[in-house]
Simulated assay, not measured.
Amino acid sequence: MPKMRKKSDLPSKDCAQCGLPFTWRKKWAKVWDEVRYCSDRCRAASKKKAKEPQT
């Protein structure tokens, strides 16, 4: 079995929407370079913000 890693040893990024840091997850292993948001909520909020009309 592979050796366990501490959560603090995993790579992290800042969310493009809220700015909070989030850490690597196993389900993101293949697409880590493409991950920009920490959650579905932030991803949806960024799309909503982009659709708002400029006044």
Rank of each mutant, 00 (worst) to 15 (best):
P2H: 12
K3N: 11
K3F: 12
M4R: 15
M4L: 15
M4S: 14
R5H: 15
R5W: 13
K6Q: 15
K6Y: 09
K6N: 14
S8T: 15
S8H: 07
P11A: 06
S12Q: 07
S12V: 12
S12A: 12
S12Y: 07
K13M: 05
K13L: 09
D14S: 14
D14T: 06
D14E: 13
D14L: 07
D14N: 08
D14C: 06
C15E: 05
C15W: 03
A16E: 09
A16H: 05
A16D: 10
C18K: 06
G19R: 11
L20F: 07
L20K: 13
L20A: 08
L20C: 05
P21T: 08
P21F: 04
P21E: 03
T23V: 06
W24V: 01
W28P: 00
A29H: 10
A29F: 03
A29S: 12
K30T: 08
V31H: 05
W32F: 03
D33A: 10
R36Y: 02
R36M: 11
R36G: 01
Y37C: 09
Y37Q: 02
Y37T: 04
C38Y: 03
S39N: 11
S39Y: 08
C42Q: 01
C42Y: 04
R43V: 01
R43F: 04
A44N: 15
K48G: 09
K49D: 07
K49L: 14
A50T: 10
A50P: 03
A50S: 12
A50R: 14
E52Q: 14
P53A: 15
P53Q: 12
Q54A: 14
Q54D: 11
